[in-house]
C-alpha cells in the first residue's frame, strides 16, 4: 500500500517527524552499509525496477510497487535505503508530496520489513514459495494500510485551531472513517493483486535462480 499523500495536507510536525525518523535510521545504516559496495548496484537496480513496475497498468486504480519483494530480496537494511530512494524519485514527478517522503519511506519500509520477517518465518513451516511469499506479502500490505490510516488519524488537529489560532474545538480535520472507507477497499484489492504477483515472481526466481532468495 503506497498512498500518494500530497503536500500541505498533513501537519508540519508529522511530516517533519517522518523525515526525522527515516533520515535518522538512514544515517545509522549508512555507517553499517557504506562500505558494502557490492550491494550498491543490486539495490539501485531493484529500486529502479520498483519505479518501473509502478507504471505497469493493472486495470484498477492502483499499481504494484514491489516493496514486499524488495523486502524479501534485499533484507531489512537495504530495503530502507531502497524505499527512501524510490519515494524521493516518485516525489520528484509529483507522485506524493516532497514533504511526505519521510512518512512514505516508513510506510513502504514497513511493508518490506514485515514481508521479510513473515517470509523467513513461513519458510520454516512450509515449502511452497508461491504460498508463503503471497501470504507474507498480503499480510505486510494489509498492515501498511492500517499504518497509513493511523498516520492520517494522528494527523488530526482541531480544524478551527488550524484556521484561527485562538478557537478550540474537538472536530476532526480529516475524517478518518471517510478516508479509511475510500482507501481500504482500493488498498485491499491492490494488496491482493500485488501479493499474487509477488508470489509468482518469487516462484519464478525460485525456479531459475534460487540463490537470490534468502
Amino acid at each position: 500500500m503506497h498512498i500518494h499523500i500530497p503536500d500541505g495536507v498533513l501537519p508540519v510536525w508529522l511530516w517533519l517527524s517522518g523525515y526525522g525518523i527515516s533520515l535518522g535510521l538512514l544515517l545509522l545504516l549508512s555507517f553499517k552499509l557504506k562500505n558494502d559496495w557490492k550491494s550498491l548496484p543490486k539495490v539501485s537496480m531493484i529500486s529502479a525496477l520498483m519505479l518501473i513496475s509502478m507504471s505497469i497498468p493493472l486495470g484498477i486504480p492502483t499499481h504494484i510497487n514491489l516493496s514486499t519483494l524488495s523486502g524479501i530480496l534485499l533484507g531489512p537494511y537495504w530495503s530502507l535505503v531502497s524505499s527512501f530512494v524510490v519515494n524521493l524519485l516518485l516525489a520528484s514527478m509529483g507522485h506524493g508530496g516532497i514533504t511526505i517522503v519521510g512518512l512514505n519511506t516508513i510506510v513502504v519500509w514497513s511493508e518490506a520489513l514485515a514481508s521479510y520477517f513473515l517470509f523467513s518465518f513461513f519458510k520454516k513451516l512450509m515449502k511452497n514459495y508461491f504460498v508463503i511469499s503471497s501470504i507474507s506479502s498480503f499480510i505486510a500490505l494489509t498492515l501498511s494500510i492500517g499504518l497509513v490510516v493511523s498516520i492520517v488519524a494522528i494527523s488530526n488537529v482541531n480544524p478551527a485551531e488550524f484556521l484561527h489560532h485562538h478557537v478550540h474545538q474537538t472536530k476532526e480535520r480529516i475524517s478518518v472513517i471517510t478516508f479509511a472507507s475510500i482507501v481500504t477497499p482500493i488498498g485491499l484489492y491492490g494488496a491482493f493483486i500485488e501479493s499474487i504477483i509477488t508470489g509468482m515472481i518469487v516462484s519464478y526466481i525460485r525456479r531459475t535462480k534460487p540463490n537470490l532468495l534468502p
Binding site: 499523500i5 500530497p6 500541505g8 492520517v152 480544524p159 476532526e172 480535520r173 478516508f179 475510500i182
Partner: peptide, 30 residues
C-alpha cells in the same frame, strides 16, 4: 496529485468548507 489531494479534501468536507480547497491548491502548487 490533485486526484489524491481530493481524497483528503473529501475527508475534510465535514470539518470546514475552506480546508478542502486549501488542500487541493496546496497539493497543486507544491
Amino acid at each position: 496529485p490533485t486526484f489524491f489531494a481530493s481524497i483528503f479534501a473529501i475527508s475534510q468536507l465535514s470539518s470546514s468548507s475552506l480546508l478542502p480547497l486549501l488542500s487541493i491548491l496546496k497539493g497543486f502548487s507544491s
